[in-house]
Every structure is written in structure tokens, then in C-alpha cells.
Design a protein around this nucleic acid. Structure first.
Length: 219
DNA sequence: CTGCCGATATACT
DNA sequence: GTATATCGGCAGC
């Protein structure tokens, strides 16, 4: 590994709560498509009961215990794929879940990928109502960019399987929105979700979340 | 708009 | 057998 790749990998070898907000505005590239990361969540391994790695390694979560900068992909509810960036040094589990992208290129590919398979009655649902829903959720962005379990373990620094995370020079938002993680039943008090409040491509929860966060404030 | 529901891989009791 | 880091259809406001 050259010095450039080593520097890129060290970015990920930290606490996912530090890495997550810094991933906002970086680009995920895969399958000839690219999108700007606009919503993320941190999962903190052995100290986080909501993390798949909380109870130690299993076959599914093995990638999270591997080297940083790789892709951890798992199947949610047996239906949807979810893509995470592995953080922390090798041997320590941690990850950032990619929850939403702003699509940048490869629109035709993404629209086609988000189309339900010809024979499927229910499985993948219906095509999105607009391009705003091409990648506005963790399962949706994987479907759009063709990320499957075959990409579990892919190196996002070297792009050995065609998937990379790159920067186009845009810094992360100075004041990202912060809120609780979505769809968990434990550790719900942790504010470990970050998103760009100005971007319309965030997930449904983040679109409604602005209202929730302000109405909850008693002052 | 809100809320309920089913699909179903993987891990755990 | 039960729970889960989701999604889209549908019913009812």
C-alpha cells in the first residue's frame, strides 16, 4: 500500500462517530453510478447494543472486524441490502451506515436498477415516484447502485470491486442536522445520525425529522 | 399526512 | 420460536 492509500485508509481507522459526519458530501461510486453522501449513522461495535457487532463476531458481521475502509453489506429483513463503511483499526468493530445519497451520475442505470424485477410480485416494490427517491434510504441506495452481498468486504480505498468512496473537494456541511438513529429498539437515546438538512434526497425520516427535533425542544 | 402490515436472512432463546 | 440497522402497499384521517 502506497503512502496515498495509507493516508486514505487512516481516515477510516477512527471512532465511527468522528468518521460519520465527515463522510457527508463525499462521493460513493459503484457500477458506473455516483452519489453524494447526505445521511449517515454511526454504529459503535462492542459498546453499542444496536450494532450487529455488539455480541462479537459472526459470519454475517465478520467484515466489521476487519481492516477499515472496507464495505460491510448485510441483508435487512431478508429483503433489503444495507451498505456500511468499516471504521476503527483491524480487530475493533465499528461502522458507518450509508442512509442516503444525492444522485450525481448514472441516472439511467439507477432508474433501471430501482425498477422491480419482471416476475416479482412484491419483493422490490414499485419504481420510485421521482428521482428524489432513487437513493433516499439505505435499501434504496444499494438497489440503485447495484450493491449486494457480493460487495461485502470490498475495499473502498483501492476500489478492488469497483466501489469507492472519493472526495471531490466539497467539505462536509458546517452544521449538519443531528438526530436519533432510525429503526432501532435499543440505544435510542444516542444521537448518532447526521444528515444535510438542505438536501431533499435524505430518507423519509430525515425529511420529517426537522419538525420532530424542533417540536421536541421544550424551550 | 399517519399508521399498520408482510416479505424473510440471520442471529439468538 | 422471536427479533430485527427496511420498504412499499394500503386503509383511514
Amino acid at each position: 500500500m502506497g503512502p496515498r492509500a495509507a493516508l486514505a485508509r487512516s481516515f477510516f481507522a477512527r471512532d465511527p462517530r468522528e468518521v460519520a459526519p465527515e463522510l457527508l458530501n463525499r462521493l460513493l461510486v459503484a457500477n458506473g453510478c455516483a452519489g453524494r453522501i447526505v445521511e449517515v449513522e454511526a454504529y459503535c461495535g462492542s459498546e453499542d447494543p444496536a450494532s450487529h457487532a455488539f455480541r462479537g463476531p459472526t459470519r454475517r458481521n465478520a467484515t466489521m472486524f476487519g481492516p477499515p475502509g472496507h464495505l460491510y453489506v448485510y441483508l435487512s429483513y431478508g429483503v433489503h441490502h444495507c451498505a456500511n463503511v468499516v471504521c476503527q483499526p483491524e480487530g475493533v468493530a465499528g461502522a458507518v451506515l450509508l442512509r442516503a445519497l444525492a444522485p450525481l451520475s448514472g441516472f439511467a442505470t439507477m432508474r433501471k436498477a430501482r425498477q422491480p424485477p419482471a416476475g416479482a410480485s412484491r419483493e422490490a416494490g414499485r419504481p420510485p415516484r421521482s428521482d428524489l427517491d432513487l437513493t433516499s434510504g439505505p435499501g434504496r441506495l444499494c438497489q440503485a447502485l447495484g450493491i449486494t452481498l457480493a460487495h461485502d468486504g470490498a475495499d473502498l480505498v483501492t476500489g478492488d470491486q469497483g466501489a469507492r468512496i472519493v472526495s471531490d473537494g466539497t467539505p462536509p456541511p458546517a452544521c449538519p442536522a443531528i438526530g436519533p438513529r432510525v429503526g432501532i429498539t435499543v440505544a435510542t437515546e444516542a444521537m448518532w445520525r447526521w444528515w444535510d438538512p438542505e438536501d431533499p434526497n435524505v430518507s423519509g425520516r430525515a425529511r420529517r425529522g426537522r419538525r420532530l427535533d424542533t417540536s421536541r425542544d421544550p424551550i
